[in-house]
Simulated assay, not measured.
Amino acid sequence: MPTMADVARSAGVSVATVSHVLNGTRPVLPHTRQAVLDAVDALGYTPNTLARSLVTSHTRSIGLAVSAISNPYFTEILQGVEAAAREAGYSLLIADPHDDPAHERQAVQLLHERRVDGVIVAPSARPSDLVAYLGRHAVPAVFLDRVLPARDHAGGGPTLGRAPFDQVCAENTGPMADLVGHLVALGHRRIGLVAGLPGLSTTQERTAGYRQALTAAGLAYDEDLVVSGHSESAGAERATAALLSLPAPPTALVTANNAMTIGALRTLRERSLAVPDGIALCCFDDFAWADLFSPRLTAIAQPSRELGARAVRVLLERLAAPDRPTRTVRLPCAFVHRTSCGCPERRDGAPGRPPAGTGGTTEPSAPLERGTAS
């Protein structure tokens, strides 16, 4: 197997020059650089990344721990992470924590033991073991999609508003309030919510948005109208059935992620409830085939790929400046107005305009970066 010394002899340069060309550690004259690259190709030289990592303490690899990789939402996030990592010259190692607190710590530990330079994690509902491990081993980390309460790095009490790690997530409260407010503007007064897994920040924030819209409309919060679907299709089937079995069932339904939308639709079909004539339906999380349903699904679209790409950029900034203050980056969502909410469809195939003041727009606002967790 050819060595770096063989490349240097073939190109007529020093081993140090070959190292600078391959690692980009120092500018090299164009003709010298080309001579080195030609020698690499001719000899079939492959850099020993393991040996390099032992010298530099860097492997140019990122660990990604996200659950339910089969979920289209996380699949798109994965695509954003992979593309941004590749563009920056980093490889990607992936682990699935299964949304299990014990398993997620083991998954991240496995990535850490593979000497990744940093990790991107979508934390579970109870991530205390994970947070303790990351803090104890000083692992550069970015929390993705779900945020943590502002606490100190040792996992103790609240600090002056600074989250323990960098975080990248979507806005949840405002967009959910827009979605529910749109249904209120259409005349609905009993709106059911199929909520996500208890304990997740996304569940808490979207439920807060639901309550915020009701308060703004002068409607009382009815806890019977909020049932957890545990962020999965089967759970949403049960939650939707429970809502439809109420003495006064909801006239509109909001699902808090795409997997639960599928479960809700399955139950509505079993109950022979047509959308939107029998019940209006809106969902948080747009997905590729939402426009193919009949009627087409009114949804909140999250910037999934950009969330993944932004998480990579935030992690690389952390690696470049380990002592910089932590921050939370929130990206805007878009209201995708279709017809499952009950709005009539125009002759051109588009839905009628949503009522003014409901936030019914497909244009997201500017991204928001904060130094504190929301």
Results as ranks from 00 to 15, higher is better:
179 L>D: 05
150 A>T: 10
345 E>S: 05
241 A>K: 09
22 L>V: 01
76 E>P: 11
149 P>H: 06
139 V>I: 14
250 P>D: 01
134 L>C: 12
166 D>N: 05
64 L>T: 02
69 I>D: 11
176 M>Q: 04
71 N>D: 13
261 T>H: 00
270 E>T: 09
126 R>T: 13
337 H>M: 12
228 S>G: 02
50 L>A: 15
368 L>P: 05
228 S>T: 13
241 A>V: 01
205 E>M: 11
194 V>C: 04
74 F>W: 02
346 R>N: 14
161 G>N: 03
188 H>F: 02
4 M>N: 04
164 P>G: 06
133 Y>A: 15
80 G>S: 09
277 D>P: 13
369 E>W: 15
273 L>N: 04
188 H>S: 02
271 R>E: 11
258 N>G: 10
268 L>S: 03
112 H>R: 12
268 L>K: 08
238 R>L: 15
51 A>Y: 00
57 S>L: 07
208 A>W: 03
228 S>Q: 10
145 D>V: 14
333 C>Y: 09
373 A>E: 07
189 R>I: 01
48 N>T: 02
28 V>Q: 00
59 T>Q: 03
159 T>F: 11
67 S>Y: 08
350 A>L: 11
159 T>Q: 03
263 G>F: 03
172 N>V: 12
205 E>V: 06
82 E>M: 09
224 D>Y: 03
12 G>V: 03
185 A>S: 11
120 I>C: 10
240 T>S: 02
115 R>H: 09
134 L>F: 12
362 T>G: 11
75 T>V: 11
144 L>Q: 08
287 F>K: 12
132 A>N: 11
154 A>M: 12
138 A>D: 15
164 P>C: 05
348 D>C: 09
92 L>T: 12
249 P>D: 00
195 A>R: 04
102 A>I: 11
287 F>H: 08
143 F>P: 10
17 T>D: 09
234 A>S: 14
347 R>Y: 09
113 E>R: 14
20 H>W: 11
320 A>M: 07
293 F>C: 06
177 A>N: 01
24 G>H: 01
12 G>M: 00
100 D>M: 02
78 L>R: 08
120 I>L: 14
51 A>S: 00
72 P>V: 04
334 A>L: 06
148 L>Y: 00
245 S>R: 02
207 T>Q: 07
301 A>P: 06
167 Q>I: 13
213 A>P: 02
112 H>Y: 10
112 H>C: 08
309 A>Q: 05
67 S>G: 10
312 V>Q: 09
110 L>A: 11
287 F>S: 10
120 I>Q: 07
165 F>G: 01
18 V>Q: 10
176 M>G: 08
47 P>N: 08
287 F>M: 13
328 T>E: 14
156 G>V: 12
255 T>W: 01
208 A>M: 01
